[in-house]
């Protein structure tokens, strides 16, 4: 019971270079940072070290999980390395900027416009305006968690009753976040529209969006949607 309390006690370094590191079970660590930027830089630094026995480095917002194989690496030794690691300036790799075409005809669009007391066009303009940072990939293979949404679109709570079936390609929002469902899944976010593009191809190991990339949405017509259906992002 005392283990995580000891590890959680580390103060947050004001320069942001030292994470608050705690165990994530007995074969992984969770590093927590004051900002998304510091977490991304540290994740890039850990990945770049390519330590033997480090199985996966998973950035997500201000957290980074590091999974290790105790058959290959001594976990106490790895923890010391992780605590001592200081990312060099600019280590967070510059991500790519990807443009995702969307037909804005989603089942929640009108309800949202009504709730926010704005026109459909204003909802679309609000969603297509910003360039979003991708903070994490997860929950589903290839699902980008991106943000931040701007007012008035930001701040919608998740649907009270999640849909049991959200189609692949659905573009959705919740809270300050936006994302795209790469495959069919249950989901509680509000669906604004759909992209014709394939966001992943598991069999080919094709995962074009990575944490650290930027995405921007652009409005297309239903005809353009049909023309580009199943094209890869």
């Amino acid at each position: 019971m005392t283990t995580s309390a000891q590890n959680d006690g580390a103060p947050i370094d004001p320069s942001g270079s030292v994470p608050r590191l705690s165990p994530l079970g007995d074969r992984a660590f969770l590093a927590r940072f004051p900002s998304e930027h510091e977490a991304a830089a540290w994740a890039a630094a850990v990945t770049a070290m390519a330590w033997r026995g480090v199985v996966d480095v998973v950035p997500a917002y201000r957290d980074v999980a590091v999974f290790a194989d105790p058959d290959v690496v001594d976990l106490e030794g790895l923890e010391l390395h992780l605590r001592a690691l200081v990312p060099s300036v600019g280590q967070a790799a510059i991500g790519r900027r990807l443009v995702i075409p969307v037909v804005y005809d989603g089942p929640d669009l009108e309800v949202i416009a009504g709730q926010l007391n704005v026109t459909l066009d204003e909802v679309v303009a609000c969603h297509t305006g910003p360039v979003y940072d991708v903070f994490a990939i997860g929950f589903l293979p290839g699902f980008p968690y991106a943000g931040w949404l701007r007012p008035p679109l930001a701040g919608l709570p998740r649907r009270r009753s999640p849909r049991t079936r959200v189609p692949a390609g659905s573009v959705a929002v919740a809270g300050r976040q936006t994302g795209v469902y790469p495959g069919e899944s249950p989901g509680g976010w509000h669906i604004l529209g759909r992209t014709p593009l394939r966001l992943i191809d598991m069999a080919q190991g094709y995962f074009p969006i990575r944490a650290g990339d930027q995405i921007q949405f652009t409005a297309i017509t239903a005809d353009e949607y049909e023309a580009r259906l199943h094209e890869r992002l």
Partner: peptide, 13 residues
């Protein structure tokens, strides 16, 4: 806490 952000998890959580 509705502002909570998602975080990495693993089996056994």
């Amino acid at each position: 806490d509705p502002s909570r952000l998602s975080t990495p998890v693993a089996p056994g959580a």
